[in-house]
Nucleic acid binder design. Structure first.
Length: 477
RNA sequence: GGCCCCAUCGUCUAUCGGUUAGGACGGCACCCUUUCAAGGUGCAGAGACGGGUUCGAUUCCCGUUGGGGCUACCA
């Protein structure tokens, strides 16, 4: 009877599978609000999000605030902000682990295990376990009784991981004040949230057997576990403040684009495998993402590569998407008001387009933009020393340049180049001998976009005025 | 200490037993060029060590070493 039933089950299993394709997974990111959104946390959130988006699953957010002493609202806000900045939106309402209804469930689940004998009352420390009867009203913790045997699972990232139970001490699940300890709260919540894939940092590997024991004691099916490698600093040690910024908010303020951050983080501990283009949009990342290519080795956070990645994205993002990231900084630098920028939006977008190619951070754009907004410019000492070495010669050259440009029609790159090269030839020098001193006169700097682009962006009047200023400066000197 | 995880250029990685071990960042050189970027080309640069298995190991197994994590009434 039984065997024929099993045989029948075996026969219909493939059909069932076809009729009921595996349900889309439910994943979650579960930070504790005890600081800002950390690089490592952001990467964990990203991979959960990516897998959810790739598979049509659900991405949830749970704030693990059961440690009231360390949790702050400010930190919760910072984490939300960080996730939003990265574009990692969550699908359902945020779950607060410490909410009263959840705490009630944690206690109820603990009670259930107590009744079933998986858990015992105890007021001892881990060092001296005993099961003395606890008198009613006496403060005590609830401790999980770890059974004999071995606890193992097939990790999505690693293969089989096994822990001998004898190496796991009976652990506390409920404090004497009735609030849950991490492992218990996580399991109870993941069950309640119907989480089917638990993807987190591999610093949780040794928590996993404890959690599996809890799932079993609660009579619940196990989720799939996926343990991601850590992210380290350039010295191979755990990423910390001494390696520079570790909060994603810091990178936002340093002029990193969220899409660059996401792209960079995605390639830490994961790769599409085979030949692939490093620079990817969010859409391309979702498309390429798969759990099979998750890596096991801890990776090192290299800020240099992040900056390169940012430079790439800076040059590739649609201008309309880049502009809102730049404008607040332009305004903050006092170069222009939003209204002024809006009034000559075409000119402004063209300027950003000109500057972004030679920028790695958003701030680089702002810095290079200064000469295009200010009336008075400062002359960089090195540039002056190099390009205006002989002041009399420089002044003559500049006034000749100014006269040439004053008559130029139309104000376009081709005639500019033609006229200035002709001037250079007349003076018996190469083009650079005209262009470089002119660049200093127009921008005050030794480096800038192409000189004709600069003149175009400045316009004829300002160009001529700038040259005159430079002549005056050289006269006085 | 115990338990667990990990190991390819300085860094991120490709390779799913047979490759001159490929690419990217960074470095260097050159090209392009009015500067700086960007872009292009080239150079240097890696399988931690020792045993097995195999006709053949970076790849599979074991050990050593090294790094990391956990070992709370933190998460």
């Amino acid at each position: 009877m039984q065997s024929s039933g099993r045989a029948r089950a075996r026969a219909i299993l493939p059909i069932l599978k076809q009729m009921n394709p595996p349900a889309p997974p439910r994943l979650r990111f579960a930070p504790s609000p005890t600081g800002y959104l950390h690089i490592g946390g952001a990467r964990t959130a990203l991979f959960n999000w990516l897998l959810a988006r790739k598979t049509g699953g659900t991405f949830l957010l749970r704030v693990e605030d059961t440690d009231k002493a360390r949790s702050t609202e400010e930190s919760t806000r910072a984490i939300f902000e960080g996730l939003r900045w990265l574009g990692l939106n969550w699908d359902e309402e945020v779950v607060y682990q410490g909410a009263e209804e959840n705490l009630a469930r944690h206690r109820a689940d603990a009670e259930r295990m107590l009744k079933a004998g998986h858990v015992y009352r105890c007021f001892c420390t881990a060092a001296e376990l005993d099961e003395r009867r606890v008198a009613a009203g006496e403060p005590h913790v609830l401790r999980f009784r770890v059974p004999e045997g071995e606890t193992a699972w097939d990790d999505l990232v690693h293969e089989r991981i096994a822990f001998p139970n004898k190496d796991i001490d009976d652990f506390v699940i409920l404090r004497s004040d009735g609030t849950p300890i991490y492992n218990h709260a996580v399991v109870s919540d993941d069950i309640a949230m119907r989480i089917s894939i638990v993807m987190r940092g591999d610093d949780h590997i040794s928590n996993t057997p404890k959690q599996i024991l809890l799932y079993r004691a609660l009579g619940e099916p196990l989720p799939q576990f996926a343990h991601l490698p850590m992210i380290h600093g350039m010295d191979g040690k755990k990423l910390s403040k001494r390696h520079g910024a570790t909060a994603v908010g810091d990178y936002q303020h340093e002029g990193i684009l969220p899409q660059a951050m996401v792209n960079f983080l995605a390639l830490l501990g994961w790769s599409p495998g085979g030949e692939f283009e490093e620079v990817m949009t969010l859409e391309q990342l979702i498309e390429a993402f798969s759990a099979e290519h998750l890596l096991r080795k801890a990776s090192v956070f290299d800020p240099k590569k992040l900056e390169w990645m940012n430079g790439q994205h800076l040059s590739r993002v649609p201008l309309e998407d880049l502009e809102p990231r730049v404008t607040p900084l332009i305004v903050a630098a006092g170069l222009a008001t939003e209204a002024e920028l809006a009034a000559r939006r075409d000119w402004y977008l063209k300027l950003i387009d000109l500057l972004r190619v030679r920028s790695r951070l958003i701030d680089d754009i702002v810095r290079q933009a200064v000469p295009f907004f200010r009336d008075e410019i400062e002359y960089d000492a090195d540039a002056v020393a190099k390009q205006w070495k002989d002041r009399a010669v420089a002044r003559d050259l500049l006034s000749a340049t100014r006269e040439t440009l004053a008559e130029l029609r139309p104000w376009e790159p081709e005639p500019m180049e033609e006229a200035l090269r002709a001037l250079a030839e007349k003076k018996g020098v190469g083009g650079g001998k005209v262009f470089q001193p002119l660049r200093v006169a127009l921008t005050g700097l030794g480096v800038s976009p192409g000189i004709f682009d600069v003149m175009l962006a400045l316009g004829r009047d300002r160009t001529l005025a700038r040259i005159q200023q430079a002549e005056a400066f050289l006269q006085d000197a």
